[in-house]
Design a protein around this nucleic acid. Structure first.
Length: 541
RNA sequence: UGAGCUAUGGUGUAAUGGUAACACAGCAGUUUUUGGUACUGCCUUUCCUGGUUCGAAUCCGGGUAGCUCAACCA
């Protein structure tokens, strides 16, 4: 089978052809939130590429802004990466490099390439110009090296208040690339850092920390998303002026999925305003949310592979993610019969008090999964949607006077429909074909419809949560307030009835409830992961 | 009145000057004790415009459209 390389892999192969012997990547999250499916794409790309070429991938926390970061996020990020099936070669923190970064800043000052600026934040903004208009030089731009060195030391020593001074790179205030207009290297923040405590009151900016961190770790391919494209000249500038290991940055388009909000700020809002029950709510696109929903690590890795890697903006169909889960679970999840919205069926031709154990296949895709026995008796529960009083043309299931097979059991025929005073069907009275066990019929006639059922006497009630997409709109972030697009029916909690064995299934086990779709056992009940292909829609018609 | 990035079916991604393909979605059918799975078929493609070339999705010129950049965020 011919192999398709994504463009990052092509770049890697190119560098190998040029003599690069070791490939080294990194995944560099800022510990200021939970990882989501978009990060999963980046994780698979970074760890996957390193693995494919026998290289290494580091985990590095970009913790240069103490006001937004927390150890809670560090821990969740590590857990999520592990859960996805990846392990980093080395664990680093940008904060571990603060001393080295400080020394390098002094070096740049000494070379006349950086200066301390006394301007206020507003003044700096005003003199930076616009995308169409050049900026103007700071009045403090030509300070002497000695003065800059002394001032920078004083900044570190805590002699100034927040915002009083910054360290800037001396590049070009008229550069067409805004990020090259004397970018800030350090700012003063008198806030404790989750790792360095109160040791520092000056913190490096992303641009001044990221490339050098890559360089220190010997990262050969620093892979990031498209919006950092304009930062690349600056990334290269610091490395060149410092004369350190030449890491290189490459950009790819971030993941977007329709009906899905991926912005960290908005996800935080959903959590804070209780539109969902936390970061790991099964409707969230976070890694932990997807896990709670029933997504497997393999399905997410498959998704990352299927969406590909390129540089153009994209919106992936949510159906692809769902297909990836079905693809994985189809071969691994055992099948069980369940009824979520029951109607009682009484088989009048079945002797009262008599029961029979029926063998059922656990997984038709996996013979090793074996068989199980389920009790059959005079009264069973079937899904309300599996019966229609006035069925349309292509309805294969039960209707007055028609036959249907109870899966692995007998063919039954509906003789009578019993309703309450409101006209709601409460019971179906049927007769069975006693010679119809094991797929046969007494006279060889074909019965196309096969429905699931549970024994009324043995069924165990369970709590089931049915999920739908969180947003109704295909592009929930397009309008002003994305909350206007919230789907009021994104979660329904119902009581379902299942085979007795399911009540003790271990937490985390996946099952396919025949016909209803894939579910995962949680500590509270069963979460619906995805439905069978289109089964919901078709059954609703 | 800037610079950079991008442009291939409905959605993604390949094709690296030589027959435009693969997946998802959709539609139809076969198999099936799941309206699942599997299999088969259909549907629908190179932003526009010049040029180079025997030959262009690919190279060149000119347009157009979308995205990114003016945090002491990352």
């Amino acid at each position: 089978m011919e192999e398709r390389l994504n463009f990052i892999e092509e770049i890697v192969e190119e560098s190998i052809a040029k003599g690069q012997t070791e490939i080294h990547t990194r995944f560099p999250p800022e510990p200021n939130g939970y990882l989501h499916i978009g990060h999963a794409k980046s994780i698979c790309l970074n760890f996957g590429t390193a693995k494919k070429y026998g290289g290494k991938c580091n985990l590095r926390f970009d913790d240069t802004n103490p006001v937004k970061e927390d150890v809670e996020y560090v821990d969740s990020i590590k857990a999520d990466i592990n859960w996805l099936g990846f392990m980093w070669s080395e664990e680093h923190y940008a904060s571990d490099y603060f001393e080295q970064l400080y020394a390098w800043a002094c070096e740049l000052i000494s070379k006349g390439l950086a200066y301390v600026d006394d301007q206020t934040q507003d003044e700096i903004r005003a003199t930076r110009g616009t995308v169409q208009k050049a900026g103007t030089n700071s009045p403090w731009r030509e300070r002497s090296v000695q003065e800059n060195l002394a001032l920078f030391a004083d900044m570190r020593a805590g002699k100034f208040a927040d915002g009083e001074k910054v360290l800037r790179a001396k590049i070009d205030m008229a550069h067409t690339n805004m990020s090259m207009r004397d970018p800030l290297m350090y700012r003063i923040i008198h806030t404790d850092h989750h790792r360095t405590g109160n040791k520092w009151c000056i913190y490096p900016m992303y641009d001044y920390a990221h490339g050098q961190s890559d360089s220190l770790e010997g990262i050969t391919h620093s892979i990031c998303t498209l919006e950092f494209d304009v930062h690349r000249p600056l990334y290269d500038w610091f490395i060149e002026k410092l004369g350190i290991f030449p890491s290189h940055q490459y950009e790819f388009a971030r993941l977007n999925i329709n009906y899905t909000v991926m912005s960290k700020r908005k996800l935080l809002q959903l959590v804070k305003e209780n539109h969902v029950n936390g970061w790991d709510d099964p409707r969230m696109p976070t890694i932990c949310g997807l896990r709670a929903r029933g997504y497997t690590p393999a399905s997410i890795r498959l998704f990352a592979e299927k969406v590909g890697v390129a540089k153009r903006d994209n919106v992936i169909d949510l159906s692809l993610l769902e297909w990836c889960l079905r693809e994985d679970l189809n071969t691994t999840a055992q099948r069980r019969m369940a009824v979520l919205d029951p109607i009682k069926v009484v088989i009048t031709s079945w002797p009262e008090g008599q029961t029979e154990m029926i063998d059922c296949v656990n997984n038709p895709e996996d013979e090793a999964a074996g068989m199980r026995a389920v009790e059959f008796g005079r009264e069973v529960l079937i899904e309300r949607g599996d019966f229609m009083e006035n069925p349309p043309k292509k309805y294969y299931r039960l209707a007055p006077g028609t036959e249907v097979r109870l899966r692995y059991g007998y063919v039954i025929k509906c003789d009578e429909v019993i309703k309450d005073k409101d006209g709601v069907i409460t019971e179906l009275r049927c007769t069975h074909d006693p010679l119809s066990a094991h797929g046969a019929t007494s006279d060889g006639r074909k019965v196309k419809g096969v429905i699931h059922w549970v024994s009324a006497a043995r069924a165990v009630p369970i709590e089931v949560r049915l999920f739908d997409r969180l947003f109704m709109s295909e592009a929930p972030e397009a309008s002003g307030n994305f909350l206007d697009n919230l789907n009021p029916d994104s979660m329904k909690i119902v009581t379902g009835y299942v085979e007795p064995t399911l009540a003790e299934a271990p937490v985390g086990t996946h099952f396919q409830f025949e016909r209803l779709g894939y579910f995962i056992r949680t500590d509270r009940g069963f979460n619906k992961a995805v439905g069978l292909k289109d089964s919901w829609a078709k059954m609703a018609k």
